[in-house]
Design a protein around this nucleic acid. Structure first.
Lengths: 129, 129
DNA sequence: TATCTGTTATACTTATAATATAACAGATAA
DNA sequence: TTATCTGTTATATTATAAGTATAACAGATA
């Protein structure tokens, strides 16, 4: 599991961290029950503050990705990740909408949009990373 | 063209404004050459500061959606919106990636994801709004 | 006892978002 | 000519979020 952060990015560090972990789970590089580094060691590894790591962990816990034991540490939720609910699908739709609206403005065809999505799915699920 | 803002949202107002205008263009409610309200009148209408409107306009101008004449006012770019470039497609892919990664984690099938996209495309292009 | 874990608290800096006024320059209509 | 509209620029202030810096606490463990 490699963490790559862009300190020049507008996206906050804790968000980038969350996404990297989520991507790791999607790629099956991180499996249910797998241990994650402690807030302190990961913070030290990356060279950031432990509170920034903690914020990412807490939010991922909140969303059901992680299980945190006060002394044992942090792990990918051993029961697996909660399935997509209707609420999740609605939030997803809300996030996709502006992306699709701009694509339409720029005359990007639905087929081309779908092809990009397909490529991402492929890369995450069967990708050779 | 109706502007609906959510002042409780985490998304900044100027961003919501940008998206509403982009969605208006996608829906063909706003056509190339169409005039937009002045920064002052729109700000007064919505009940926000003129600088917030100006920020949205400036950014939309920067991205090629709007044309701004110092005295004539603001209009949807009469030459049409710039087509999707390779750079745009790469940025789009970067934006889609975390959404798709989380969908995979939550066991949302690619077909279901595509169906959501299709519904949004439909709603924006042929939608009865 | 020493060291690890997450957790909590406090304080500080920085950047962004949003607002509040004010003024300027050019175009236009009364 | 005067008043009013346009975008633009400048300055200041407030509020919030992100990130950092220390410090301490409580429970588990070697």
């Amino acid at each position: 599991m490699f963490i790559e952060l862009d300190f020049e990015s507008e996206d906050p560090i804790y968000l980038q961290l969350m996404r990297q972990i989520i991507e790791g789970i999607a790629k099956k590089e991180l499996l249910p029950g797998d241990a994650l580094p402690s807030v302190r060691s990961l913070a030290a590894d990356i060279g950031i503050n432990l509170h920034t790591v903690n914020k990412a962990y807490q939010q991922l816990k909140q969303e059901g990705f992680l299980q945190i034991h006060r002394q044992k540490g942090v792990m990918i939720h051993p029961d697996g990740i909660p399935k997509a609910t209707e609420a999740y699908k609605m939030a997803l739709e809300k996030n996709l909408r502006p992306l699709i609206a701009e694509s339409i403005c720029r005359d990007l065809k639905q087929e081309d949009f779908s092809e990009i999505c397909e490529r991402i799915f492929d890369n995450l699920m069967h990708g050779g990373n």
